[in-house]
Simulated scan of single mutants.
Amino acid sequence: VRLPTVVATIWTGALGIVTLFYLDQFDTALRSTWFWFFAYSVYPVAGVYFILRLRKRPTSGERTLLPPVHRVLLGVLGAFALAVSLLLLFLPGIMVDVWPWKLNLMLAQIYGGPLLGLAVIALLMTMADRDECFISAVGIAMFPVLALAASLMHLNLFKPQELSSVIWFASLGLASLAGAFVLTSVASRKENSRKG
């Protein structure tokens, strides 16, 4: 669970920091607002605690990395998601103009958190032990598939014929295929290790 813990910490931490810049847009009369404040304050702190605890655990010393083709796919996915997430977080005005559907500054920066999490998990998997990648591989495979499904359900929100819409759907399609490819490999390795 080390890798998913890192991602959850980054994801929730980014959302917590973004929230601080938009406090005036939250209705404090709503319970959901207080849950939002609580979740995105406590989850990152708890995540840092667990990450520090997991670092102190002894390892066997034997590591088997994912095959090179998988690491390249994850590296490309991670680099692309990292670039987009940093643009969303630090240059949201530019991203609002080019995003495939209508977006405001706060939402642009909020989207940056999950994409930063996706970037980090993909890049960490390029260096992680193969046996430790199963949960992360499921996440890498499901993230773009679910985003693609949600996008298809809301096609009316997209700017038709826009390059940004084409890039959005192409990126999700390619990321879904890459994620499925990596997951299949990791799952088959896990199954083989159970039999062996």
Score class of each variant (00 low, 15 high):
residue 3 L to V: 00
residue 5 T to H: 03
residue 5 T to N: 03
residue 10 I to N: 00
residue 12 T to V: 01
residue 13 G to L: 10
residue 13 G to H: 12
residue 13 G to V: 06
residue 17 I to S: 04
residue 18 V to S: 02
residue 19 T to W: 09
residue 21 F to Q: 07
residue 24 D to S: 15
residue 25 Q to R: 15
residue 26 F to M: 09
residue 31 R to D: 10
residue 32 S to Y: 11
residue 34 W to C: 09
residue 35 F to A: 13
residue 35 F to Y: 15
residue 43 Y to N: 02
residue 46 A to R: 10
residue 49 Y to W: 10
residue 49 Y to V: 05
residue 49 Y to K: 00
residue 54 L to T: 00
residue 55 R to F: 11
residue 56 K to A: 12
residue 60 S to A: 13
residue 61 G to F: 15
residue 61 G to L: 14
residue 62 E to Y: 12
residue 65 L to V: 03
residue 70 H to R: 13
residue 71 R to M: 02
residue 73 L to T: 01
residue 73 L to R: 12
residue 75 G to F: 10
residue 76 V to R: 09
residue 77 L to E: 04
residue 80 F to K: 05
residue 85 S to V: 03
residue 85 S to D: 04
residue 97 D to T: 08
residue 98 V to N: 01
residue 105 L to I: 14
residue 105 L to G: 04
residue 110 I to D: 06
residue 113 G to Y: 15
residue 114 P to T: 02
residue 117 G to I: 01
residue 117 G to S: 05
residue 119 A to T: 06
residue 120 V to L: 15
residue 120 V to E: 08
residue 122 A to W: 13
residue 123 L to H: 07
residue 125 M to C: 14
residue 125 M to S: 03
residue 126 T to I: 08
residue 127 M to K: 14
residue 128 A to I: 02
residue 129 D to V: 07
residue 133 C to I: 05
residue 134 F to M: 08
residue 136 S to H: 09
residue 138 V to N: 02
residue 140 I to M: 08
residue 142 M to P: 02
residue 144 P to I: 13
residue 146 L to V: 15
residue 147 A to D: 14
residue 148 L to V: 00
residue 148 L to I: 00
residue 149 A to S: 07
residue 151 S to Q: 11
residue 152 L to M: 15
residue 156 N to H: 13
residue 158 F to M: 08
residue 158 F to L: 12
residue 158 F to I: 01
residue 162 E to Y: 09
residue 163 L to S: 03
residue 163 L to C: 04
residue 166 V to S: 05
residue 167 I to G: 01
residue 174 L to E: 00
residue 176 S to Q: 10
residue 177 L to V: 15
residue 180 A to N: 07
residue 181 F to D: 11
residue 183 L to T: 06
residue 184 T to E: 06
residue 189 R to M: 04
residue 194 R to E: 13
residue 195 K to P: 00
residue 195 K to H: 08
